[in-house]
Nucleic acid binder design. Structure first.
Lengths: 254, 254
DNA sequence: AGTTGACATTAACGTAACGTAAAGGTGTAA
DNA sequence: TTACACCTTTACGTTACGTTAATGTCAACT
């Protein structure tokens, strides 16, 4: 099956300008040019465009997309599996946003209170997106001078190191918490380590740490059933366990 | 609670540059400037930023956001309810994309066939987004000269009229189909009207209509259990009913 | 045979929403 | 007092296209 630029655009839901731009930057070249200079796209281009749109949907830059799908080691099925994972992550984040908006409505109506922290839960998807952009380049640069370059510099929001630390911190927290819940003892070593990791994680966003605020957030995790359902979805009771651990950690257990 | 620019940025997950930009364009002004010229944000600004981020998440332009939330008739709770609806739509579209990626994986592995149309299911969210941008302005312009202006012009992808026609067509199709399913007769008048509406809807994207392709798409809706589950989610049996109606409509019932 | 009107082309300037860098003032902890 | 993380304004750069202009192509109607 062959398509002119408009037909392909209509089918895929993109403008002709977009397709010409993709041609211009070498991201998606037409299969051939007919005698009148028209761009003609074939089945291979259709599939490539689909791949491009998947990556675009996940917030990757066109430059990075081109590097990835033009790589000789590019594995289409593998890429699709990764898309699936990323789309699932995105949906989880969307669910958080939905909880957020529902809670905000109730807060507006004065039925519940809401901390400033809570008001921004679910907006952090950027962390995922930025991640992707960098991984594409890093693979090519093989952790070259860019890493060394940025190492000695401060960046506005977060340096790459901070970002990576945050990622590994999140993972460590999740693992520790999972193990701690199994012990069943919120005063135990593992649980207290989890509370400490949670404090460190918070300090990435807060920068004025107080035990009261920490404990307040912990209570909030549990008191609102919708958030609790989200946090408990892997292991029931996790939110309550973390709250108890934090209350002990901060010495505010009353 | 008061925040400096960086603290607010960290909490909300946006850069300081973004906050300064929002100040510059009058979208989010700080509560006050302290004696050193520092921007200080208060609780009202926190809430306003949250609103801005909700709208931004839904793809609205900053200009349109400002118009909406600065309007004297702006109702915060009403806006939040709309956010909820839009977020739910977005999640539904994400689910379609997930089905798409899963089907594509199977198609890559040669287990199933996939039409070119199917490959782009779930990428149409732009229709929703563009919609929003315009509604914001239209409310202000009161369908002024812009409508007249664009009326006589051809637009690359779709004119506003085409877009609106598509929207109303989609609604009409959904309603007709819902009523037709209740009759239970795919050869009946309502069902055939639904099939005709579906053909018109298709012609917005296809532009080369053929009964075979139409029937092929109809079969596809039903044969794949995942798509079927999606289309049947309001009323079970809808997909199969539509397929039967289309097979009769195209005279290709074999 | 001419005209219309939807399609296609290149070229080039415009735009949104910031990123990034430069040059410098502020606040506090060592 | 020196370091260093914070703040400021100014200004140019970037991405991913939108938009306009000027022009060629093609099938259909008159």
């Amino acid at each position: 099956m062959e398509y002119t630029i408009q037909k392909l655009g209509r089918m895929a839901g993109v403008s002709t300008r977009t397709l010409r731009y993709y041609d211009e930057i070498g991201l998606l070249r037409p299969a051939r040019i007919n005698s009148s200079g028209y761009r003609i796209y074939g089945p291979k281009e259709v599939d490539r465009l689909q791949q491009i749109l998947f990556y675009r949907e996940l917030g990757m830059s066109l430059e990075a997309i081109r590097e990835v799908i033009s790589s000789p080691s590019f594995d289409r099925v593998q890429a699709l599996r990764e898309h699936r994972e990323k789309l699932l992550e995105k949906r989880a984040q969307l669910d958080l946003l939905l909880i957020n908006v529902e809670k905000t409505i109730e807060a507006c109506e004065g039925r519940i209170a809401m901390s400033d922290q809570e008001k921004f839960i679910g907006f952090k998807q950027k962390l995922v997106e930025e991640n992707e952009e960098k991984y594409g380049r890093e693979a090519r640069d093989k952790y070259g001078d860019e890493a060394v370059d940025r190492a000695n510099r401060k960046v506005l929001n977060m340096t790459k190191e901070q970002h990576e630390e945050l990622e590994s911190l999140s993972r460590e927290l999740a693992e520790t918490l999972r193990a701690a819940v199994k012990t069943g003892d919120p005063a135990g070593e593992l649980a207290q380590k989890a509370a400490d990791l949670h404090r460190k994680w918070l300090c990435f966003f807060w920068d004025e740490y107080s035990g009261e605020a920490h404990a307040g957030l912990a209570r909030m995790y549990v008191e609102d059933e919708r958030f609790r359902a989200y946090y408990d979805k892997d292991q029931p009771g996790t939110a309550a366990f973390l709250r108890d651990a934090i209350l002990i950690y901060t010495g505010l257990k009353e």
